[in-house]
Measured scan of single mutants.
Amino acid sequence: MASQGTKRSYEQMETDGERQNATEIRASVGKMIDGIGRFYIQMCTELKLSDYEGRLIQNSLTIERMVLSAFDERRNKYLEEHPSAGKDPKKTGGPIYKRVDRKWMRELVLYDKEEIRRIWRQANNGDDATAGLTHMMIWHSNLNDTTYQRTRALVRTGMDPRMCSLMQGSTLPRRSGAAGAAVKGVGTMVMELIRMIKRGINDRNFWRGENGRKTRSAYERMCNILKGKFQTAAQRAMMDQVRESRNPGNAEIEDLIFLARSALILRGSVAHKSCLPACVYGPAVASGYDFEKEGYSLVGIDPFKLLQNSQVYSLIRPNENPAHKSQLVWMACNSAAFEDLRVLSFIRGTKVSPRGKLSTRGVQIASNENMDAMESSTLELRSRYWAIRTRSGGNTNQQRASAGQISVQPAFSVQRNLPFDKPTIMAAFTGNTEGRTSDMRAEIIRMMEGAKPEEMSFQGRGVFELSDERAANPIVPSFDMSNEGSYFFGDNAEEYDN
């Protein structure tokens, strides 16, 4: 993207840094990872977990959730003011799984939030270390993106479920800051804005008074975040219109849905970061690795190297396929839920299948599930090659597409044709070009129609051997075009429920 120079890199967003050079960025990201790792080690000690239990991804998720809940100030305040039966607002906890007599047992633990905050700050040299908290939120978000298709949420806001490739980060909490905003897809931002506008339509006082002023500035800020994701002048001009509207209503909703559809071809720039579970960072720190000293990046080879040398386990339900569970977590670790499966298959070195073909449910185990038949197995999170994460949407291309997802959002900077089903997408653009945004709409449609099938995206960008740390010898991959490109292809993934 041309304006790259004016933006802070995501590592800076990730670490609240002012302008830093590459070495400083690597050190501050490393410091953040160190903090998460030290916190995780301490929690495993508190909970008396064995090494194996500490490497269980379900335990990692519970521990991450506990610290996120302990620092969720708004919710904590709300819980104190609106006490609900049987919930102690000062405590947080969740299921911890232990191996007892050759069987997995679930144990519900409860801790004072104050105590968890103390352990977290102690692991982070006394700081609140917001960057580390956001990092864990993005890992949870990436896992949700890989596990669930947001059909219901899309339909509720009037969008087409086939636009799911635009929904990265749709389950990120509001408090995820600049680093969170960077990884949100165009569809996620559109959905947040539509929800806001709908509230304004239904509630006369939404934009009024002292609160209304705050609401208005939040609305304009979200519009600017979305505008910054678009790469064409016409899309940005249309966002200006939406932002400046005196009284946002149905016309703005129409414009936003139009823009979301246009992003299936004229893709937005959305950041991709490899955020790993805390149970990967903990053992690495415990083994003596100093992330701050060595430096770390979320968008280069580092996460690949770390996963190459990590042992992570997962509980497996009786009829689940461990290899499929591994694929789910591998995609989440690489922030690749909406990437082209052919690119992923090449990088991973084994075939990556669409969601609907995987015999696996989510990673988390519900409290009512029976533990008797639970097994555990090693997650295979290694890769054959590594590639640089991208934040450009890439230019655009036609490809055989599917009944489910009709476009992709690249996660890796790797040369390819970008699949999208042009006739299906263009069919949504018939007729409606009147109104105050008509010239911009016409211009956007013209650009979409001009998108050429034979153009290559990320020209000359390749993948790298894991021994090639400096990215000196790019390998331009070859793809098996007979395979499906979309992950949520004609899909039956479970729906995400809060």
Rank of each mutant, 00 (worst) to 15 (best):
1 M>C: 10
3 S>Q: 12
12 Q>W: 02
13 M>I: 06
20 Q>P: 00
26 R>Q: 08
30 G>L: 13
34 D>M: 02
37 G>Q: 14
41 I>Y: 09
46 E>P: 15
46 E>K: 09
47 L>R: 05
48 K>I: 08
48 K>T: 05
50 S>C: 00
52 Y>K: 01
52 Y>S: 14
56 L>W: 06
57 I>E: 12
60 S>W: 02
61 L>S: 07
62 T>I: 03
71 F>C: 02
74 R>T: 02
75 R>P: 08
76 N>C: 05
78 Y>A: 03
82 H>M: 04
84 S>W: 00
84 S>M: 02
84 S>G: 05
86 G>H: 08
91 K>M: 09
92 T>A: 09
93 G>M: 08
100 V>T: 00
104 W>K: 07
104 W>Y: 02
104 W>A: 02
108 L>E: 10
109 V>P: 03
109 V>G: 05
110 L>F: 08
112 D>S: 00
114 E>R: 05
122 Q>H: 14
122 Q>I: 02
123 A>E: 12
124 N>T: 09
126 G>N: 00
131 A>I: 00
133 L>R: 06
134 T>A: 14
135 H>L: 14
144 N>V: 15
145 D>Y: 04
150 R>M: 05
151 T>S: 03
153 A>P: 05
154 L>T: 03
154 L>Q: 03
157 T>Y: 02
160 D>T: 04
160 D>I: 00
163 M>R: 05
163 M>S: 07
166 L>V: 00
167 M>F: 06
175 R>F: 07
175 R>I: 13
188 T>S: 07
190 V>P: 02
196 M>D: 09
198 K>N: 02
201 I>Y: 11
205 N>S: 03
215 T>D: 01
216 R>Q: 10
218 A>G: 05
222 M>I: 06
224 N>W: 10
229 K>F: 11
231 Q>G: 01
234 A>P: 15
239 M>E: 14
240 D>G: 02
241 Q>E: 14
241 Q>W: 11
242 V>C: 15
244 E>P: 01
253 I>W: 10
257 I>W: 08
259 L>F: 10
259 L>Y: 06
264 L>Q: 00
268 G>Y: 12
269 S>E: 10
269 S>I: 07
272 H>K: 09
282 G>F: 12
283 P>E: 04
283 P>S: 00
285 V>E: 05
290 D>A: 13
294 E>V: 02
295 G>N: 13
298 L>Q: 10
299 V>Y: 10
301 I>T: 14
303 P>D: 10
303 P>L: 14
306 L>A: 04
313 Y>M: 04
314 S>P: 14
314 S>M: 08
319 N>C: 01
324 H>M: 10
328 L>V: 07
330 W>H: 10
334 N>P: 07
337 A>E: 06
341 L>D: 03
343 V>G: 13
355 R>C: 10
357 K>L: 13
359 S>A: 00
361 R>K: 14
362 G>R: 06
363 V>A: 14
373 A>N: 01
373 A>S: 07
384 R>Q: 14
385 Y>F: 14
392 S>V: 06
394 G>P: 10
394 G>R: 08
397 N>A: 00
400 R>E: 05
400 R>D: 12
405 Q>D: 10
406 I>E: 06
409 Q>L: 02
413 S>E: 09
413 S>G: 12
419 P>G: 15
422 K>Y: 13
428 A>S: 15
431 G>Q: 02
437 T>P: 12
439 D>I: 07
441 R>Y: 05
442 A>F: 07
445 I>L: 14
450 G>S: 04
453 P>H: 02
460 G>H: 02
462 G>I: 10
462 G>N: 10
465 E>Y: 08
473 N>I: 03
474 P>V: 14
480 D>Y: 05
484 E>Y: 08
485 G>Y: 14
488 F>W: 11
488 F>M: 11
490 G>R: 12
492 N>G: 13
493 A>T: 06
494 E>F: 11
498 N>L: 01
